[in-house]
Design a protein around this nucleic acid. Structure first.
Length: 468
RNA sequence: GGGCCGCUAGCUCAUCGGGUAGAGCAGGGGACUUUUAAUCCCAAGGUGCCGGGUUCGAGACCCGGGCGGCCUACCA
C-alpha cells in the first residue's frame, strides 16, 4: 500500500458529473477523464471485477474496477469501508446503465481504522450520533443536508441584510455586566485583570452603543450563552441574530423580519409553506399581529388590562395553576397568564405585540397603549422565534428600569438585569429612535429544515462528557 | 427538578413462565468479470451499562447508581 500523500488535487465533484452525464446510455464510455476524491461507502467485489460507491460530500458515484485495468487490484479490493480514496479514470456507464468512474488509477488518502456503522441502518442511537457527529454526517444524509441548509440560511441572511445597507459587526463575548436579556449567565475569570466576566446572554447593549456611535444599521450573528436547561428547543450556547436600525420602530422591524423569513423559506425550500412535524406553517407575509391581551382574551375569554385589579389577576393565575410570587405586579401576572394559557396554543405565524413595561426593561413605552411597550415576539410553529421592539432611548427611563431590575436581582431573581452605568452614559450621548430584534437562528434553522430538535441543527450540541 | 421509556457483538436488532445468548451487516478466510444493502460457503466475535439483592440458577425479577431519549417544568 502506497504511503499517504501530502496533497491531492481532485478536478471534479460527483454532483457535477451526475448532472453533466445525466443522459448517457447504458454501456457508454466517454472520453472524459476525471479525478475525484472521497470516501468509500460500499464495495462489491466479484472475483475479477469490483464495484465501489464513492461519496465526496456532493454526491455518490459508482467506481468500476476490472482486474485487468485496475492497478493494484487486490489492494483495491482490500480497502475498508470508510477509507478515503483519490481516483482518476474515465466516466462511463455499466451495462446496467449505472454512471461510474472507471478506476484507471487510485490512491488511498486515509484509512478508516474503525468500522463504520451498519451500511443500511446507519446510526440510530442518538447519543452516538451527537457524540460522534463526524460519523453521523457521513452515514446520515438528512443530517448533512440539514447543516448545508443551515449554512445557506446564514449566508442568505447576511446578504439580505447587507443589501439593505446593514453592517455586520462583532461585539464582546466577555461582558463585565451581563445584560440585554433576562437569563442566567455563565461566569468566568480573567486572571491578569483579576476580573470576573460573564459570557454574553445577548449582544443587545453593545449593538445599541454602536447605534449611538452613528452606525445606523448594524447586525451581529453570534453565539450567546445561557446557563439554563437543555431540551429539544434549548442549547446552552446558541446562535442569535440581532439587528438594530436607527429611525425605525417596531412596525418597521416586524416587516423586515417577516420579509427575511419569507425570503429564506423560498430560497431554501422553494415555498413559503413549511412542514413542521405533521403540520404546515405558511410563513408568507404579512403575518398576523395581535396584542398579548387580545390573544389572552381569545384563549380564556377574559379581557385583562393593566387596570384589572391585581387580586383578580392573581385569582386567574391560580385558577390556571400558575405559580406566582407576591412581588409580581399586574404586568408580570399578565405575562405569566399569557405564557401558561395562551402561548402554547398559538401556531402562527403571529406577532404577539404590546408587552407590559414591567417585563420589558429595554423597550420603549407604547405611544398609545399606556403601561405597555412597543414590543413583539413572533410565534412560528408554536415556538418563539424572535423578540424585538422600539428601543428605549431615554436614559432616565432606562435608569429607572435598570434599577427595578437590579432590585429584583438583589431580591433573589438571578435572571433580572443589573444597572449598566456605561450603557446609560452611552444613552446620555443620544440614541435616536431605533428598532431592533433578536432572532434565534437555531430555531429558524429548525423551521427551515423540518427538524424537531435543536440538536439536529447544531453540529456539536452540549452534552455531558463521555464516561470513559 | 418530575414522569415515562431505553441500554444485549463494531452497527442494526432478536431471544425469555428466570435454566449462563442468536441473526443480518461490518471485520477474517474462500468462490465469483456488470454489481447496486451483490450473492454463496467457512470460521471467529459477547464481564448482556455498573453495583448490590432474591434464587440451586438472573441479561431477564427487586433495589441502588450511571448514561441517553421523549414529555413536562425551567428558560419572557
Amino acid at each position: 500500500m502506497a504511503d499517504i500523500p501530502y496533497q491531492f488535487a481532485p478536478d471534479s465533484k460527483v454532483q457535477d458529473l451526475i448532472t453533466k452525464h445525466a443522459d448517457l446510455e447504458a454501456g457508454e464510455e466517454t472520453s472524459d477523464v476525471v479525478t475525484i476524491a472521497g470516501r468509500l461507502m460500499l464495495r462489491r467485489v466479484q472475483g475479477k471485477l469490483a464495484f465501489g460507491t464513492l461519496d465526496d460530500g456532493s454526491g455518490r458515484i459508482q467506481l468500476f474496477a476490472p482486474s485487468q485495468s485496475t492497478p493494484d487490484f487486490d489492494e483495491f479490493c482490500d480497502l475498508n469501508l470508510g477509507d478515503w480514496l483519490g481516483v482518476t479514470g474515465v466516466v462511463m456507464t455499466t451495462r446496467r446503465g449505472e454512471l461510474s468512474v472507471r478506476v484507471d488509477s487510485w490512491i488511498r488518502l486515509a484509512e478508516a481504522r474503525r468500522p463504520f456503522p451498519d451500511k443500511w441502518h446507519g446510526i440510530s442511537d442518538t447519543d452516538t450520533r451527537y457524540r460522534q457527529r463526524y460519523v453521523d454526517l457521513w452515514v446520515t444524509p438528512e443530517a448533512r443536508e440539514a447543516f448545508q441548509t443551515r449554512s445557506r440560511m446564514i449566508s442568505l441572511t447576511r446578504s439580505f441584510l447587507e443589501e439593505r445597507g446593514a453592517m455586520e459587526v462583532e461585539t464582546p463575548i466577555f461582558h463585565p455586566i451581563p445584560g440585554g436579556a433576562n437569563a442566567k449567565p455563565f461566569t468566568t475569570h480573567h486572571n491578569a485583570l483579576d476580573l470576573d466576566l460573564y459570557l454574553r446572554i445577548a449582544p443587545e447593549l453593545y449593538l445599541k452603543r454602536l447605534t449611538v456611535a452613528g452606525f445606523e444599521k448594524v447586525f451581529e450573528i453570534g453565539r450567546v450563552f445561557r446557563n439554563e436547561g437543555v431540551s429539544t428547543r434549548h442549547n446552552p450556547e446558541f446562535t442569535m441574530l440581532e439587528l438594530y436600525e436607527a429611525y425605525a420602530d417596531y412596525e418597521d422591524i416586524m416587516r423586515l423580519v417577516e420579509e427575511l423569513v419569507e425570503h429564506l423559506a423560498i430560497e431554501l425550500t422553494g415555498s413559503t409553506v413549511l412542514t413542521v412535524g405533521d403540520r404546515e406553517l405558511n410563513v408568507a407575509k404579512p403575518w398576523r399581529r395581535a396584542t398579548m391581551t387580545e390573544l389572552i382574551e381569545e384563549s380564556i375569554g377574559m379581557a385583562l388590562t393593566l387596570d384589572t385589579p391585581i387580586e383578580e389577576l392573581r385569582a386567574i393565575a391560580s385558577e390556571h395553576e400558575i405559580p406566582i410570587k407576591d412581588a409580581y405586579g399586574p404586568g408580570k401576572l399578565i405575562l405569566e397568564i399569557y405564557e401558561k394559557t395562551t402561548e402554547s396554543s398559538l401556531w402562527g405565524p403571529v406577532y404577539v405585540t404590546d408587552y407590559p413595561i414591567e417585563v420589558s426593561p429595554l423597550s420603549r413605552e407604547h405611544r398609545s397603549n399606556p403601561g405597555m411597550t412597543e414590543r413583539f415576539e413572533a410565534i412560528l410553529a408554536g415556538r418563539e422565534l424572535c423578540n424585538g421592539f422600539s428601543e428605549l432611548v431615554d436614559p432616565e427611563q432606562q435608569r429607572i428600569r435598570f434599577e427595578e431590575q437590579a432590585a429584583q436581582n438583589a431580591g433573589g431573581d438571578d435572571e433580572a438585569m443589573l444597572v449598566d452605568e456605561d450603557y446609560l452614559r452611552a444613552l446620555e450621548y443620544g440614541l435616536p429612535p431605533t428598532g431592533g430584534v433578536g432572532i434565534g437562528m437555531d430555531r429558524l434553522a429548525m423551521l427551515l429544515t423540518g427538524q424537531t430538535s435543536i440538536r439536529d441543527v447544531v453540529f456539536f450540541p452540549t452534552l455531558r462528557p463521555e464516561q470513559t
